[in-house]
Design a protein around this nucleic acid. Structure first.
Lengths: 158, 158
DNA sequence: GGGATTCAGGACATTTAGTATCCAGGTTAT
DNA sequence: ATAACCTGGATACTAAATGTCCTGAATCCC
């Protein structure tokens, strides 16, 4: 899995604590010492996916496109890592005995079905958790996290 | 995910229909037109993981090391793809504000926890399905699969 | 309008992982 | 002894992930 998923999740949590404020890619990168240009690519992907909105120019930057309760972890994984399953069925059975050339073995093959079932439970678990859930859980153990995050961004005026 | 996982699963199902018989890597590869040397590497990994047993020399080959009811899909995924989770926590929080240098953020970080929860459901689903389950499900829709598989292997005497 | 700031996205370069082949060495059946 | 077969290391090739750079367009401020 793409490392950008981790960056994106933490950045979205941070943005949930800066509602209505546009944060530049440079400052989001500086927060965790990430490569600016590369993080920018991930932010662009999140924007294309409708998770963030972006504004160009001075005073520009990124912010969450909607309520953090409405942004699931699956949304972010799909935006960064793409929609494909980890297990890719190459329809190996088409080379086997008694193969039906016009059958779609990604659906017929029992192995493929079993792997897809597992990935579905994975995706369902991710879809059940939102950025707001994560943020709340952070606050429950570190109540000062939102304030210290805002404070660090304020001091990142570079 | 490694393509060898697909090869390994189908090969194990086939081997479950050839109990007690040693099948060479060459014939297992020929069954699906796979590259012999590379499939051999996957079979070696399965052997190291205790899923297969191997015998050298003429009349040698591979067979299942235990009852197919005792071989889960997770066993195979771990043997081929390794034990690591897809999401790899790089402890990004250590670069953030108020970071504890001696904390293990792979355990403390809420994002990391959420991702691991999802992967756990994934692995649990894979661990709940065995090669025997797969084989039975194949038989229920294609009752002649075991016989035609044995027949194809018999004609692969190359 | 002009300059500065920032996002958008294409074009690279680099690194790493996956895919694949080959060979030398050890094992075993005949 | 010989041939068949597994084991594992070395190596090459390919694709994907990672990272940088640069041009262009949007936007703010003077």
């Amino acid at each position: 899995m793409n490392e950008g998923v981790e960056w994106a999740m933490h950045s979205c949590v941070n943005l949930s604590w800066l509602p209505g404020e546009a944060v530049t890619a440079k400052r989001l990168a500086a927060f965790y010492n990430l490569p600016t240009a590369y993080l920018n690519k991930q932010l662009q992907a999140l924007t294309r996916a409708g998770i963030l909105t972006s504004v160009s120019g001075p005073k520009g930057g990124f912010q969450l496109a909607r309520d953090p309760h409405k942004i699931t972890l699956l949304d972010i994984v799909v935006a960064i890592d793409g929609p494909d399953d980890a297990f890719r069925c190459t329809q190996i059975l088409k080379q086997g005995p008694g193969a039906d050339p016009k059958a779609d073995y990604t659906k017929v093959c029992v192995v493929s079905q079993a792997m897809r079932t597992a990935e579905l439970t994975y995706r369902r678990t991710l879809a059940d958790q939102t950025i707001a859930d994560i943020a709340e859980r952070v606050v429950s153990t570190s109540p000062d996290a939102p304030a210290s995050t805002r404070n660090r961004f304020a001091n990142l005026k570079s």
